[in-house]
Design a protein around this nucleic acid. Structure first.
Length: 454
RNA sequence: GGCGCGGUACCCAAGUGGCUUAAGGGGGCGGUUUGCAAAACCGUUAUUUCGCCGGUUCAAAUCCGGCCCGCGCCUCCA
């Protein structure tokens, strides 16, 4: 496959990826609402889109990646009331911890993180436009969207307007399917033509994506759970004002579940990233999440995560062996025709890519040990690692860093004692290394060591 | 109830009409290697089989119909 194909929720099929204005690619991914610590589900989403971003970079596109921050909403306000801290303080702290977690997971920063609280004038302007053209109306200090007047409502989620009408009571709305663009709020609101209030849930993304990427951009992403109502309503609003569906490709990642049920804070059914990242190697976690197709659910299991550490260890060994044999080698960039790239071309198939990399690495590693490897093995190995580390973003430890001198001297010491057949002393040194978290492996070409991977 | 997704070996998981008499990882088993351990290497681990039953086709895990089971969304949610 020589072209990149990706599944588009809007058309329910895989499509050839053709940007609106190549080589530029505009990509907008729904970001977090910072009101608490992040869990594994967040990690999966931002890792998936990070891989997509890195892959598009690899293919030569110039990606502009935007991730919004919903820094004012009901949950943050509730937290504020409980803790006495202002909402801005809560969102700032949560955002910082989110950024730290993402950095550990080797998720690259987006180009911009627009925040709702900094976008109020533009949001008001957008809503005014909708009120003026009759798609929105004022009711008791709040502004609602006239969903019934939206053209082709339900195009993304397949939802039917009639079914929504049967739903909840309408309250101050003209019709139950209408949703709020602006919510009356005397305490935490901003001044507006309709009185004090704050933006509704969906409007921010319509406004911010429009501001940063224009009225039609390439990729809009987020979790599967955002398809309805969030993205559906976003499309409806934007279309009502600009006459365009804002993004060409709508891409959604599957959920992380726990014993079959969706991981969510509201149900207490979740693993926090902070805990996981201190217990397991972040790169093992990243690899584990990429071992399942991005649209499939991942049923999280710590036993599987531990298994993954072993698979990761094999790649880490491979890198060590490769570097040990390639000192004078100047690598050429990874080839688009490589099998691991080809499978990524088909809807970002990361599990297949990892499979291809293993398939490639195993015989090369065996030739390394046998001493029969060729220049081409080194080249292929480099290419595979470039995709593994650069596109999948799973970094492998670099053996022999400056700070590892002490470890190396102990390994050398043990090897000297072994040569002298003083095995008892040699085993003592090995135990000492073991306590330092270092594992020594005696290969046919001499001892090699790795830091233990959790 | 409506809409959507999925059920592949001991576990995880690709594959969605012939290139697959089903990738890859983990685990198991047998062997080589080894001071010991670990690692590594070699071989093996779905062969009327891809939830069940029918159908289409020269050809199906892959398409169609029915059924069973699981999950997500329909309310905040990555």
């Amino acid at each position: 496959m020589t072209e990149f194909r990706i599944y588009n929720t809007l058309t329910s099929r895989k499509e050839k990826f053709v940007p609106v204005d190549p080589p530029k690619v505009g990509m907008y991914v729904c970001g977090i609402t910072p009101y608490g610590p992040s869990h594994l589900g967040h990690a999966r989403c931002y890792i998936v889109f990070d891989v997509l971003k890195k892959f598009l970079d690899f293919l030569g596109y110039e990606v502009k990646y935007i991730q919004n921050i919903t820094d004012i909403d009901d949950k943050i306000i509730k937290k504020s009331a409980e803790s006495g801290k202002p909402p801005s303080e809560i969102s700032r702290l949560c955002m910082e911890s989110f950024m730290e977690d993402m950095e550990k997971l080797n998720v690259s920063k987006a180009d911009e993180y627009p925040m709702v609280s900094h976008t109020i004038p533009q949001i008001i302007e957008f809503i005014e436009g909708l009120v003026e053209n009759g798609m929105a109306y004022l009711s008791d200090g709040s502004v609602y969207f006239r969903t019934g007047k939206a053209e082709k409502y339900g195009r993304l989620s397949g939802r039917k307007l009639e079914d929504l009408k049967a739903g909840e009571g309408k309250g101050k709305k003209e019709s139950p399917e209408d949703f709020s663009l602006w919510k009356k709020d005397e305490e935490y609101g901003w001044e507006s033509p309709w009185g004090r209030g704050r933006p509704g849930w969906h409007i921010e993304c319509s406004v911010m994506s429009h501001m940063t990427l224009g009225s039609v951009f390439d990729i809009h992403g987020g979790g599967l759970d955002l398809i309805f109502p969030h993205h559906e309503n976003e499309i409806a609003q934007s279309y009502a004002l600009t006459g365009c569906v804002p993004a060409k490709y709508w891409i959604h990642n599957g959920m992380v579940t726990l014993k079959g049920d969706k991981m969510a804070k509201s149900t207490g059914n979740f693993f926090l990233l902070s805990g996981l990242l201190s217990e397991y190697d972040p790169m093992v976690l990243r690899m584990y999440l990429l071992r399942t197709g991005y649209r499939q659910p991942v049923d999280f299991d710590t036993d599987r995560l531990s298994e993954e550490a072993k698979a990761y260890g094999k790649l880490a060994d491979f890198k060590g062996e490769l570097l040990a044999r390639a000192e004078s080698f100047s690598p050429s960039p990874a080839d688009r025709s490589a099998s691991e790239v080809k499978v990524l071309m088909d809807d970002l198939n990361t599990p297949a890519a990892i499979g291809e990399i293993f398939k490639k690495i195993t015989p090369i590693l065996s030739r390394f040990y046998a001493g029969t490897h060729t220049e081409n093995d080194i080249r292929e190995g480099y290419g595979a690692l470039e995709i593994f580390e650069g596109v999948l973003g799973i970094k492998l430890p670099v053996p022999m860093k400056e700070e590892d001198r002490e470890i190396q001297s102990l390994v050398d010491e043990r090897q000297r004692l072994r040569k002298e057949k003083d095995f008892e002393a040699a085993d003592h040194v090995r135990e000492k290394l073991d306590r330092m978290g270092v594992e020594v492996k005696d290969t046919p070409t001499g001892p090699r060591w790795t830091k233990k991977i959790r």
